[in-house]
Design a protein around this nucleic acid. Structure first.
Lengths: 332, 332
DNA sequence: CTGTTAGCGCGTTCAC
DNA sequence: GTGAACGCGCTAACAG
């Protein structure tokens, strides 16, 4: 059993209320009394019980952050920045790894409610709109990187359409026509938007959309790796492959290297996200950069109720941007 | 304000105690009453308040896990497995990223105490023995990947000496004599053990220990990258470099690739940890594999009070192992 | 089978 | 400046 406020009160020969006041710096206390209390706190190594405080205050100073996959650098980086932003306001993070699984998402939200989280940030959840809408009645919810426009749920959304369009157009302008595409989870909105961007860019340049050039992936490395086998066995191989996220692009590249297919000489690769690796990968991946840092900051700020005009400052930054490096060659 | 047990009791026309019994499946309840309560719970969407439960039970079913760097794959993988193991027992994880910083470690432990965590797992903390010892009086503590033999603190320790010795010896037997070494944080025990292994292997084979071949790093990629610059400008360059963790090895490799230094033809590289990348890196790194999965599992099990004989089953697995891949060449 | 009482550790309210 | 009483949401112990 831990030291409680009562123990301190007893030792300092005051009421618990006085101790509480000292700890929280509220009310007025005689200098001498304060010193006695402080001494008692010190000798007893008293630490206030946050659980009890939470129960009284109906506020935990915790926000939950649910990501689809903690081992994915895109998300672990997000966590770092979310933690930093939350800390600025004296908040702790309760982190959950949903593993791209709906049931886990649900359980984690329930758990957050039970633990009196002050809010939940969901990064690209797979839970349907209606359920998120319903849940948001029970606890403040911010959905990140997915539009909740049809609902009243708060969101921080970066439309990925333009990024995918520009990336595809870039490949086309480099002379590519047979452009393979690796898709992500179908039930994620941005997956659809990215694919639309890809398709529309083809259409704009009069290039037919060929279903056989589309591979279904799951945003994980392995599916990029697998896509390689498929594309390489096509009678007419693509000259370029656009992976709808960097993880799959890297998986694809690994397969290429292992099979002696050189990038960008034998095939070009374009990614999406611009994740920060912990070391430089060669060839350096051309990709679409995603404004994830301002995005997650904004999500935290929304939850902590920063004034709207302060939050909207970030808006200017929220767009994707083409990043040209070494993984795409010109077909001239 | 959320729905409480009182609301349910009122609606079901029973006492809160009865609701509590239904929720927890304790005591005996008339079938009919149970149904009324269940209905009320359903229509009200009642969720028990874990905070209040925690206060009563003096038990939160949460364990804290503090890692030095959440974005390092070694640790994010650890988190995944810790979470899985904890879940088996119905526990949630409270994850903290200390950023290799002592103050953060301290704050996070304090916060864990305040939040009534049932225990704390510290992965390679930098806090001194005495302080950890003291802290362990306030909350169950398990230190992972660091020996606490001098204290009464629980630990799950894998001595890294042998692994470093074998790795160095492997390089020597491949014909290398000028072997560079990149060290990690000096105040971490395993750092010392790894360096001892390196030094002893040299000694065994009559190769002088040269201080100019030692570079100080911090376990992060960047310091491996920086070490490259140092080694490459040496009048007598090393023919092989042993990085004391994979992150620094990868940093070093990146620098090599960017500077046209080929691995393993121009220089050999050996790592430590055998982290699982989310894609295949080329060249594939030769390294020392670290039994981190059984290690973290064991830590969780110790905290959750699994019987000693169950836990010790894991012991057999707890040793490092040489993993030979493509980053080391023979000098023949 | 069900309800009442008391208390987990703390802070708010209102006295003194 | 300080303290006593009450309640946050829940459950253990004891009635009935």
């Amino acid at each position: 059993m831990g030291i409680t406020i009562k123990d301190v009160a007893k030792l300092a020969k005051v009421s618990t209320m006085t101790v509480s006041r000292v700890v929280n710096n509220t009310g007025t206390i005689a200098v001498e009394t304060r010193k006695r209390v402080l001494d008692a706190i010190d000798t007893l190594h008293y630490k206030p019980n946050t659980i009890a405080r939470t129960l009284v205050a109906q506020k935990s100073r915790i926000i939950s952050l649910i990501v689809p996959d903690i081992a994915n650098p895109f998300f672990s980086e997000l966590i770092k920045h979310a933690e930093a932003e939350a800390k600025r306001f004296g908040y702790n993070l309760f982190i959950g790894d949903a593993g791209w699984d709906i049931t886990n998402e649900r359980e984690f939200i329930d758990s957050s409610i039970g633990r009196m989280s002050d809010g939940v940030i969901l990064v690209t959840p797979r839970l349907p709109d209606e359920e998120l809408q319903a849940l948001s009645a029970a606890i403040p919810l911010v959905v990140v990187d997915r539009s909740m426009a049809q609902t009243k749920v708060m969101d921080v959304y970066v439309d990925n359409y333009d990024g995918a369009f520009e990336a595809t157009e870039f490949l086309i302008e480099a002379g590519h026509e047979r452009i393979g595409y690796i898709r992500g989870w179908e039930d994620v909105l941005n997956t659809k938007r990215r694919e639309q961007g890809y398709a529309d860019a083809l259409k704009k340049h009069g290039i037919p959309y060929r279903p056989e050039l589309i591979q279904v992936g799951d945003y994980r490395e392995q599916s990029g790796y697998n896509a390689f086998r498929y594309f390489i066995e096509l009678s007419e191989r693509p000259t370029a492959v656009f992976a709808s996220n960097d993880m799959m692009a890297y998986g694809f590249i690994s397969a290429c290297i292992q099979n002696g297919v050189r990038i960008p000489y034998d095939i070009s690769v374009m990614g999406f996200d611009d994740i920060t690796l912990f070391f430089e990968h060669v060839p350096r991946l051309s990709t679409v950069s995603h404004p994830r840092i301002p995005m997650i900051r904004k999500a935290v700020d929304m939850l902590l109720g920063l004034p709207a005009d302060e939050i909207s400052k970030f808006d200017a930054e929220l767009h994707t941007e083409l990043v040209i490096r070494d993984s795409v060659s010109r077909l001239d």
